[in-house]
């Protein structure tokens, strides 16, 4: 008695599950795969960018507090071909404004300080824009891709049950492959969403910490310039 004969030869590997799915479900899977690739790409980019920004802030604070001559530091920063980034760009914008006003002369210290603060605020906003880049995308992926996966699953299960209505003898083996295929879509959606949500939360907190560091540096540097004015 060959009992295996009763069972359909069900090869339920993940490849056959994907290839056996209906076209809309496959499209959903493809979309989710692209979304997942893009979100991981941005995750790695942001990891590198934020780590580098943090290191640069550390280095610049070190050199700033150890340098006796601000003019020399400014010359060193602007001499290179590349424009300063991160905290250095705040310093560069503030000091340039300060030296320009100093050269004009005859201005009140409060006016000079306000002008320097505005220049540094503009540089700060530009930096924050760079740090915040791609975070909305990650947030969208984290919240939307489970729903996209769910759409594929619902569609696939709908198909499985429609197919079931055509046969006289309804057995589990007739629906099970269809449902398994459909559930793969939800799995892919979750695979895309979970890292995106974790990365978003982590990056948001790192960006906040960097922003606080930038702001405190701005305040401290404004004070120093106020004393010199």
């Amino acid at each position: 008695m060959n009992l295996t004969d009763i069972q359909p030869a069900a090869d339920m590997s993940i490849v056959s599950l994907v290839t056996g799915a209906s076209v809309p479900v496959q499209l959903v899977m493809l979309l989710l795969l692209l979304i997942s690739l893009a979100s991981w790409w941005y995750i790695f980019i942001k990891v590198f960018v934020l780590r580098r920004a943090s290191e640069e802030a550390e280095d610049f604070e070190e050199t700033f507090w150890h340098s006796s001559d601000l003019d020399q530091l400014y010359q060193g920063l602007t001499a290179g071909r590349r424009t300063p980034k991160g905290m250095a760009s705040l310093f560069e914008a503030g000091y340039r404004e300060f030296s320009r006003l100093k050269r004009q002369g005859g201005l009140d210290a409060t006016v000079t300080t306000e002008s320097v603060r505005r220049a540094m605020r503009a540089a700060y906003n530009r930096e924050m824009d760079h740090l915040d880049a791609h975070l909305p995308f990650l947030a969208s992926v984290g919240s939307v891709s489970p729903y996209i996966g769910l759409l594929g699953t619902v569609w696939g299960i709908m198909n499985a049950f429609l197919g079931l209505s055509n046969v006289a003898q309804a057995t589990l083996t007739q629906v099970a492959p269809g449902i398994a295929e459909a559930l793969i879509a939800t799995a892919i959606g979750l695979f895309a969403a979970i890292p995106a949500v974790i990365a978003y939360n982590r990056f948001a907190s790192s960006v906040d910490r960097l922003a606080i560091r930038y702001e405190s540096f701005t305040e401290e540097f404004t004070n120093i310039l106020h004393r010199k004015a």
Partner: peptide, 21 residues
């Protein structure tokens, strides 16, 4: 899509993303 200052990192990050998948 990709910022000017991120271009140097883009290729490496893309390769790592594909590796993860």
């Amino acid at each position: 899509m990709i910022r000017q200052r991120e271009q140097a990192l883009a290729a490496r990050a893309g390769a790592m993303a594909i590796a993860v998948h």
